[in-house]
Deep mutational scan, measured.
Amino acid sequence: NITNLCPFDEVFNATRFASVYAWNRKRISNCVADYSVLYNLAPFFTFKCYGVSPTKLNDLCFTNVYADSFVIRGDEVRQIAPGQTGNIADYNYKLPDDFTGCVIAWNSNKLDSKVSGNYNYLYRLFRKSNLKPFERDISTEIYQAGNKPCNGVAGFNCYFPLRSYSFRPTYGVGHQPYRVVVLSFELLHAPATVCGPKKST
């Protein structure tokens, strides 16, 4: 009989979030998941669920729940959905087409922007091929755009693959930082360890 609440607040209220290319994953298990708490945590810009209804979450049980978190800019949030393409979905964080879970995003301009520009958040701009779903690539190998090998040196047709967002508070919403948490629900042929409040007794 599990009584402890799932530590969603640790994920959502973390002081620092990860850069999207090096997104963070927390496995959540053996706890009571009260998803209604999430609705009250922040004024969400996005709370979209796929393959599951957000209002039914509190009635369900899962084997595992994974919470992935990272920062992107406002106009990239739409890429965090099944079947999307674009720089983020292709080279940084890719959801599977049959994704079961929820994408939660909110504006973090007050936390993640600086007047002089916050350069701490990076994204991958160049990659030889698209990522597979939930693949994480943290390599910093020089990207070869031409025929000549780069031998690890940046220059003509040889690019450092990561680029930094420079978040400034005066930017338009599309270029402001957004914190994203992706909850993916895993149903294996194994005992369910993460249940809503109704199912945990």
Rank of each mutant, 00 (worst) to 15 (best):
127 R>T: 04
121 Y>G: 03
201 T>W: 13
196 G>F: 10
52 V>W: 04
13 N>V: 00
31 C>Q: 06
195 C>D: 09
132 K>T: 09
175 H>M: 13
193 T>K: 12
123 Y>A: 07
122 L>W: 12
84 Q>T: 11
97 D>I: 09
32 V>I: 14
15 T>W: 00
183 L>A: 00
100 T>W: 07
4 N>L: 08
186 E>G: 08
198 K>P: 12
39 Y>K: 15
146 G>N: 06
8 F>M: 07
173 V>A: 13
185 F>M: 11
28 I>V: 07
116 S>M: 12
151 N>R: 12
100 T>E: 07
147 N>R: 12
26 K>S: 08
112 D>S: 02
65 V>A: 11
100 T>F: 15
185 F>Q: 01
196 G>Q: 11
109 N>K: 10
131 L>D: 04
194 V>D: 10
169 P>E: 12
116 S>Q: 14
33 A>Q: 07
182 V>F: 00
119 Y>G: 15
195 C>E: 09
160 F>I: 10
93 Y>A: 02
45 F>S: 15
75 D>T: 06
52 V>F: 12
139 S>Q: 07
144 Q>R: 08
62 F>T: 09
190 A>T: 13
166 S>N: 14
169 P>K: 09
130 N>H: 13
160 F>R: 13
190 A>K: 13
87 N>M: 14
194 V>Y: 10
121 Y>R: 02
135 E>W: 01
182 V>M: 01
145 A>E: 11
132 K>E: 12
162 L>P: 03
136 R>D: 03
17 F>W: 13
43 P>L: 05
5 L>D: 09
7 P>L: 09
18 A>H: 09
70 F>S: 02
40 N>L: 07
83 G>M: 11
12 F>Y: 03
115 V>A: 15
51 G>A: 03
122 L>A: 15
154 A>C: 10
35 Y>N: 06
98 D>K: 09
134 F>A: 06
98 D>W: 04
32 V>G: 06
50 Y>V: 02
122 L>H: 15
7 P>W: 06
67 A>N: 06
58 N>V: 07
112 D>E: 06
130 N>S: 12
23 W>T: 03
110 K>C: 07
187 L>Y: 10
105 A>P: 00
132 K>A: 12
198 K>S: 14
43 P>K: 11
75 D>S: 11
30 N>Q: 06
128 K>W: 05
165 Y>N: 05
80 I>V: 08
55 T>I: 10
34 D>L: 09
186 E>R: 07
55 T>G: 14
117 G>L: 05
50 Y>F: 09
71 V>I: 07
150 C>H: 03
178 Y>N: 06
165 Y>R: 03
127 R>A: 05
16 R>E: 15
41 L>R: 12
80 I>W: 01
195 C>R: 05
131 L>W: 02
25 R>N: 03
113 S>N: 11
125 L>T: 14
186 E>D: 14
150 C>W: 02
64 N>T: 11
198 K>N: 15
165 Y>V: 05
170 T>W: 14
10 E>M: 08
111 L>S: 11
116 S>F: 11
196 G>I: 10
72 I>R: 00
161 P>R: 02
14 A>S: 09
67 A>F: 05
193 T>A: 12
70 F>V: 01
115 V>I: 13
110 K>T: 12
11 V>D: 04
14 A>W: 00
41 L>G: 12
169 P>R: 09
201 T>N: 15
120 N>R: 13
114 K>N: 15
136 R>P: 02
139 S>D: 08
121 Y>V: 04
15 T>R: 10
108 S>M: 03
167 F>M: 05
72 I>V: 13
16 R>N: 13
86 G>F: 04
142 I>L: 13
100 T>Y: 14
47 F>Q: 08
160 F>T: 12
5 L>H: 10
95 L>T: 01
60 L>N: 08
11 V>L: 10
148 K>S: 13
51 G>V: 01
71 V>W: 01
131 L>N: 02
126 F>Q: 13
201 T>A: 14
14 A>P: 00
11 V>T: 05
167 F>K: 04
115 V>Q: 15
190 A>H: 12
170 T>G: 15
86 G>D: 02
45 F>I: 12
32 V>C: 12
158 C>M: 03
36 S>R: 12
113 S>Q: 07
25 R>Y: 02
37 V>A: 13
110 K>E: 14
129 S>T: 13
177 P>R: 02
182 V>W: 00
145 A>V: 12
106 W>V: 04
161 P>W: 01
65 V>H: 01
17 F>N: 07
179 R>T: 03
134 F>D: 06
128 K>N: 11
185 F>N: 01
11 V>M: 07
164 S>N: 15
111 L>E: 14
179 R>V: 04
9 D>K: 11
157 N>M: 11
167 F>L: 04
61 C>D: 09
172 G>D: 15
86 G>N: 03
164 S>D: 08
73 R>M: 09
13 N>L: 11
7 P>V: 09
188 L>C: 15
43 P>E: 11
165 Y>E: 06
176 Q>Y: 03
60 L>E: 09
23 W>P: 04
181 V>I: 07
112 D>K: 01
20 V>Y: 01
17 F>D: 05
169 P>S: 10
50 Y>M: 01
78 R>W: 09
42 A>D: 06
200 S>F: 12
151 N>K: 14
16 R>W: 08
24 N>V: 07
18 A>M: 05
71 V>L: 06
135 E>P: 01
33 A>K: 05
141 E>Q: 11
96 P>G: 05
89 A>E: 03
69 S>P: 00
190 A>G: 15
25 R>W: 03
45 F>N: 15
159 Y>L: 10
38 L>E: 04
63 T>P: 05
42 A>N: 10
155 G>N: 10
30 N>L: 04
57 L>A: 06
6 C>V: 03
75 D>Y: 05
166 S>M: 11
168 R>H: 12
135 E>S: 05
51 G>C: 01
189 H>I: 09
198 K>L: 13
78 R>M: 10
52 V>Y: 06
72 I>E: 01
125 L>I: 15
83 G>A: 07
1 N>E: 09
97 D>S: 09
35 Y>E: 06
140 T>A: 10
101 G>R: 00
185 F>E: 01
126 F>R: 10
142 I>R: 05
146 G>C: 04
85 T>L: 05
56 K>N: 12
83 G>D: 06
68 D>V: 02
116 S>C: 07
40 N>Q: 12
48 K>Q: 11
61 C>G: 06
101 G>D: 00
97 D>V: 09
11 V>E: 04
50 Y>K: 01
46 T>W: 10
26 K>G: 02
155 G>Q: 09
92 N>V: 02
69 S>T: 09
85 T>K: 13
51 G>I: 00
75 D>K: 08
119 Y>I: 11
10 E>A: 10
112 D>I: 01
190 A>C: 10
164 S>L: 07
84 Q>M: 14
132 K>V: 08
11 V>R: 02
133 P>A: 09
161 P>E: 02
104 I>T: 01
109 N>A: 13
99 F>K: 00
95 L>I: 11
17 F>E: 04
137 D>K: 01
82 P>R: 00
56 K>Y: 06
147 N>V: 12
29 S>C: 08
190 A>M: 11
144 Q>T: 09
68 D>A: 01
87 N>Q: 11
171 Y>V: 14
